[in-house]
């Protein structure tokens, strides 16, 4: 398919020269892959003291975890922006991870901290993901099936949902006892340096399965990005496609939130960087670029953080700061609409 489209492009495009594009999207992807690899190698080796048999597995696990998280955040954001046909909204801005935090808080509130902590984390994860898929489906499906036409309405609803979920969580966190709270807090804070290893295998499998699902839907995704009316005109069962993608997004957000906690603007940062450098509408190119960028940012950022700043600050703070600036810049430019 890729070849077919590529040949059409060369057929249809006038002999270029007018385009200032220096690299084709494929070359960009290769470049990003190399950068990601460099970041990973740097993270594994720079400043290593002591036995390699300890350092490599220890750091390798972290690289693995950051890769999984990077994939989850990048894919969920790009998918979400595809179905909402704009480039400002992200699952986090719409309150997805606040919903996940609420589910976790509710579990601690109902079961008690001890029970929560002693339940098999993988079982707990599966239950949380299931709850997440269910509730996000209920809440967000109607919003994206064409009922809400206005982007501002969507953002507003998202913010209201987010605040609502956070307030509910906040209320419950105040009601539980301090021990339970400590357990909960441990689960909720975004930290890329202390990723829960027990969830890594099940998360990896989950993300891989979702990736397969996404690949199967790639042509439909490209059409969905045109907006609801064009998608319907072109024969896409819009409601069904949007529901499927919301399920994927819910699963991916659960994975990333379970592993590192909520990060609001990171997805926005990588998705918009991907749109910027890929300069194509095809999700088959945008998605890998977003994934690679996100892996580069996470692992590269962690290298800088640990080696340059000596763990002085949290990566999530830097990412949120930069991401927030990008968000404001996009809003001001009005390009996201």
């Amino acid at each position: 398919m890729a070849e077919d489209i590529a040949t059409t492009r060369t057929l249809l495009r006038p002999p270029a020269g007018s385009r200032r594009l220096a690299l084709t999207p494929r070359q960009v992807l290769v470049l990003l892959a190399v950068l990601a690899l460099i970041a990973a190698v740097a993270y594994m080796t720079v400043g290593a003291k002591g036995s390699w048999s300890f350092v490599l597995p220890f750091r390798g696990t972290k690289v693995w975890a950051m890769t999984v998280v990077g994939c989850a955040i990048a894919i969920s954001t790009v998918l979400f922006q595809t179905i909402s046909a704009n480039r400002i909204l992200t699952p986090s801005i719409m309150g997805f991870d606040a919903l996940y935090a609420l589910i976790q808080t509710t579990l601690v509130f109902v079961l008690g901290g001890l029970a929560y902590a002693t339940v098999d984390p993988q079982l707990r994860f599966v239950v949380e993901v299931a709850a997440m898929v269910l509730f996000s489906g209920l809440l967000f499906r109607s919003l994206f099936s064409g009922a809400a036409k206005s982007l501002y309405l969507l953002v507003l609803v998202g913010i209201v949902f987010g605040v609502f979920f956070r307030s509910l969580s906040g209320l419950m966190q105040r009601l539980i006892n301090p021990n339970d709270f400590a357990i909960l807090q441990d689960a909720l804070f975004a930290r890329f340096s202390a990723i829960d290893p027990t969830l890594l295998v099940v998360s990896t499998i989950t993300v891989a399965l979702v990736c397969l699902w996404v690949v199967r839907m790639l042509p439909v995704l490209d059409v969905l990005a045109l907006g609801r009316e064009h998608a319907v005109n072109l024969g896409v069962d819009h409601k069904r496609a949007v529901s499927e993608i919301l399920v994927m997004v819910a699963i991916l957000v659960s994975v990333s939130t379970a592993l590192v906690g909520p990060v609001t603007f990171f997805g926005l940062l990588v998705s918009n960087l991907a749109y910027l450098i890929i300069r194509s509408h095809r999700n088959a190119l945008i998605l890998p670029a977003a994934i690679l960028l996100s892996v580069i940012c996470l692992i590269g950022g962690q290298v800088v953080l640990e080696r340059v700043f000596g763990f002085d600050t949290a990566l999530s703070i830097i990412i949120e700061f930069v991401g927030g600036l990008v968000f404001i810049a996009i809003l001001l430019k009005g390009k996201g609409r």
Binding site: A85, R87, L226, V236
Partner: peptide, 18 residues
């Protein structure tokens, strides 16, 4: 017809074959 994705005319027309 507003489209957020970055499309060329040829890309857009090709969608008609979807």
């Amino acid at each position: 017809n507003h489209i957020a994705a970055r499309l060329t005319v040829a890309d857009l027309v090709a969608f008609g074959r979807f």
